[in-house]
Amino acid sequence: MRPRSISTGVAIVLIAAAVLLPLVAGDYFTAFGTEIAITVLMLSSYRIIVLTGEWSFAHVVLQGVGAYTAAILVKDLGWPFPATLAAGAAMSALVAAILSYPLLRMKGFYFLMGSFAAAEAIRLLWRKIPFFGGTRGLSNIPAPYLELGGVSIDFGHTTNYFYLTLTVVICCLLLMWWMEQARIGGIWRAIQQQDVLAQSIGIESRTYRRLAFVIAAAFAGIAGVLLAYAFGSVTANRFSLNFALYLMIWSIVGGTRTFYGVVLGGVVLMVFDESLRFAEELRPGVYGLILIAVMLFFPQGLERLLAPIVGGPTKAPRRDVVPSTRSENA
C-alpha cells in the first residue's frame, strides 16, 4: 500500500499547488495554469486510447468538436456553461462514435493515417464553411457567469475561470481514474497487451476499443469547451496536425503506462514548453531531439525514471508486436 499512499500524496500536493497558484502568481501564470489543466485533461483522455494499443491523430480535432459546439451554442442560443459542457462532450462522443465505425477496422499505422484523414477533413470543413466562421473561426465567446441567490461570480476573471477549469478537470480525472480501476480498465489493458489472447477469452476487442475511443472523445470534448471559454475564441488552426503531434509527443515522452505519469508529464512539459518561449522558433527542434533521445534511451517514457519512487509497474513492459497465432504448422 505504500506506493499508493505516496501517489495519493503527490496528487494532493499537486492539487494544493494548483489551488494556491492564483494567490502567488499573476494573471499571466494563472491563465497559463488554466492551459496546463486543459492539457492534462487532453493527455489523460488520450491515454485511454493509447491504453488499447492505438495512436490516434484525431483526438485534437475531437477536442475542436467540443469547442465549436460550445461556441455555437453559447453565441447563437445563449446556453449556460454547464449545458454547453455536456453538449460539447456529447457531440465529441457522437462524432467519435461515427468515426469509429470505419476507423476501428484499421490498426497500427493504418489507424493512425485513417484518423488523420478523417480529422483533417473535418478541420478543413470548419475552415471552409461560413457557419463555423471559416479561417477566422468564432470569437467573442462570452465568459460563463453565475448568478445564484445574490451571489454572482464572473468567470471572465482569470482566477475564477482557473478555479472553474480546475474543478471540472479534477472531476474528469477522478472519473477516468475510477474507470481504469474498474473492469473496463482491465479489459483495455488486456487488449493492449495481448489482443489475440483477449479475444480468445471472450473480449470483443473492437467493441471495447470503440468504447475507449468514444469515452476519450467525450473528455476531449470537455477539454475543448474549457478551451473555447478560456480563449474566448475558436479557430480551426488550434486543432491542426501540429497539436496532434504534440499530444502524441508528450504522451510518449511522459509515458502512458500510469495515470500519474501523464498528469505529471503534462505539467512538467507545459512548464518546460513555457520556459522555451524565448526561443519560440527553435522549440520544435528541441522537442524533436527530446523525442529521438527518449525513443533511443527510454523507450517506455520518462515516467519509468519515477516508477520506483511513486509506485507502478516495475517490470519492463513489452510493447513488441503481438506474435499472432501460427497460421499453419506446415
Binding site: 489472447l197 471472450g202 473480449i203
Partner: peptide, 22 residues
C-alpha cells in the same frame, strides 16, 4: 467471432506462451 464463441464456453489455449506478460 472468436470472442462470441468464447463467451458461449468455447475457449482455447495457444501453442506459443501467450500471456498478459506485464
Amino acid at each position: 467471432s472468436t470472442s462470441a464463441r468464447a463467451r458461449l464456453g468455447l475457449v482455447r489455449t495457444f501453442q506459443s506462451n501467450l500471456l498478459f506478460s506485464e
